[in-house]
Design a protein around this nucleic acid. Sequence first.
DNA 1: CATGAATGAGGTTTCATTCAT
DNA 2: AATGAATGAAACCTCATTCAT
Lengths: 214, 214, 214, 214
Amino acid sequence: MMPDRRRRPKARPQEILAAALELFSSQGFSATRLEDVAAKAGLSKAAIYLYFPDKMALLRKLIEETAGENLEPVEILVRSDTGPVAPILRQLLRYFATRIASSPLPYLMKLVISEARAQPELGQLYLEKVVSRGTSAMQALIERGIASGEFRPVDAFLTVRCVIGPMLLAGIWRGVFEPIGGEPLDIEALAAQHADILIEGLRAHAPASPREAA
Amino acid sequence: MMPDRRRRPKARPQEILAAALELFSSQGFSATRLEDVAAKAGLSKAAIYLYFPDKMALLRKLIEETAGENLEPVEILVRSDTGPVAPILRQLLRYFATRIASSPLPYLMKLVISEARAQPELGQLYLEKVVSRGTSAMQALIERGIASGEFRPVDAFLTVRCVIGPMLLAGIWRGVFEPIGGEPLDIEALAAQHADILIEGLRAHAPASPREAA
Amino acid sequence: MMPDRRRRPKARPQEILAAALELFSSQGFSATRLEDVAAKAGLSKAAIYLYFPDKMALLRKLIEETAGENLEPVEILVRSDTGPVAPILRQLLRYFATRIASSPLPYLMKLVISEARAQPELGQLYLEKVVSRGTSAMQALIERGIASGEFRPVDAFLTVRCVIGPMLLAGIWRGVFEPIGGEPLDIEALAAQHADILIEGLRAHAPASPREAA
Amino acid sequence: MMPDRRRRPKARPQEILAAALELFSSQGFSATRLEDVAAKAGLSKAAIYLYFPDKMALLRKLIEETAGENLEPVEILVRSDTGPVAPILRQLLRYFATRIASSPLPYLMKLVISEARAQPELGQLYLEKVVSRGTSAMQALIERGIASGEFRPVDAFLTVRCVIGPMLLAGIWRGVFEPIGGEPLDIEALAAQHADILIEGLRAHAPASPREAA
DNA sequence: CATGAATGAGGTTTCATTCAT
DNA sequence: AATGAATGAAACCTCATTCAT
């Protein structure tokens, strides 16, 4: 049928992984049949075993491969600059927005969230290679802002979670709710709005404005 | 065998649902065997069918039942008051934190995220009964803050996502990453820190502070 | 709902059997759920066990009870008369037609046909109590006709099968094909037509008419 | 384990159907376990699903496949000849006898009788493809006999049922009662005897013989 | 490299049957 | 006499995985 199917064996693993990502993230790992992955990749079920030892290996590879892939730019951004922190934060959020809006990252996130508890090693891998690394870098950034007097003396650890939260929300929106009919979300605009609020909210004011009691 | 066989028929459905929630959210819906749900509920596999027509019905009921359960307080909070918005926002976040820290809500969230694409009706149910309702209420609150001059003229729709994001993160942390070894997160503290930043970041300043360029 | 359900315990076994006959013959023994029999009889599933030891006992009782029930008139008819055989044959067929057209006999027949191989004892019971007894009586009748010179010297054993065949067909038609949309069959007319042909076909002619070669 | 695993894939469906026919007709459709069909066909349970989508498909195929298979010769016989009808009738009965005595037809018949009510589409298929077609052909034959003056003016519709009845009986005897111990029946002899009686009984006599009153 | 054929293990679901009330 | 609750056993069907070609 497809006369040229037998020609690019080198691309096979990637084709298989792409098919797997799509199906795993739309139907769940356990509910996806290897046969469907094969069909989507244009192969027979058995051929997958030429490239991967078993089903779980697909999932593992998918996570390993993308884990941290998006983080290098983040770390570079954070480290490379020693000027004011606010523009870096803004850029960081803009970068996240791009990845979320136009890479398969949201599907990966959804997959990790779904499977982490059933496959703890995978979750731990992600925790280590992505979450820790990413939050560390950002925490350093926030701390630098505080140290330089640009930011108020907030709790940097918690603040990182405040920064990331809306981006996680955007990812889940795109990976989960948009596909089932949720209204599209303008992720770049969200990132910009969020950056705005954050920077304003973290900035050290000349005279600390009085705040209302909780 | 079971010493209390035939004892509490009225409580059975709830017992089954509790068992199901725990297992579904830890192993995934599809990977959970009904037999394990039964065992955890202290019943035989077949007994579940006396209360639910099939496995999916468990999932559906779980979502239907909790959908919106947490929202009434939110709506009351938002509507009941006509004073300044900031303290309400703070209270709201404190309320979310409590639900996330000490109710099964995070497991539900994780479950919905995991299964929404495979079972779109369930995802849509959640979208409608929880997401829309919750965000509407909060958007009204933000808009009230803007209208009264308490807040800057931000995009209320996007701002709601900024408010919720970190709480979503907290839920996923507790529901997914803590169980596999992630360091515990002080959710109440996170909510307080987030409220702090938000309120500061949204407040209208007498003379709008000049902001740096992107 | 039925306020007087608890009043006639004596009739219970019969009610249960009637429900069973209807369901067994329409869905098959194995495919009929005892719960449905119970529901049709206006009882709970468990109550059936107060009257019958198990499911097979229902089937057995159903067959035992009706087995031979229709045969006494046949035997009486055959034995009681010593005149010409033809009118008896005609009456016999008329009697069969009546039973087939307006008693549950066809359903019983269908049930026996369906279950005989899976439950050989039941089939054997029927063979003995109904088939043998009925055919013996009829064979005697045919033989009397031959002996008296009224009938040609045909094979009495086979002739009995020729006599019964169309009645079996009528029973299956009513019990199987009419319920699924087959055109109704006028069983009494069939019996009359068949009697006609048979009597004419069996009669001894003064000079045996020459017959064509096969 | 199986020495000839993977050897005759083309014959598989037929092998499976043969096994199914034997078991379905001896134990009933519902009481037959697919695993036993598989074992009899020399396959594993799962392998059946490579050839048939589900259990019912086996039954359907069995009936579809044989439906009408025996009727072409009948129609040819009926149409091909324009001479006297009696010899054709005799041949027809002889043909039926052969099919009943030495093809799986009786098992099919039994199966249809058993399952028609539970699976009405199957019963209707048989009604249409076999019963209607067969009886139409034969009715035409009888009518031709009447029209030519060879037969008395009987009711052709009913007469067809008289003709077929004993053959149905023979089929049920072979398919149901012989297997459980009923004495063997010489079906060819029965067909001959029946032909004899029929032809004699239908023949138009020069001077209509006086008949006894009912 | 690729696959069609096959299967073992396992999951969901059904149901005859039991038992405490 | 009657039933609601419960269960063990088994049936259908699925699927990851293997292997001969």
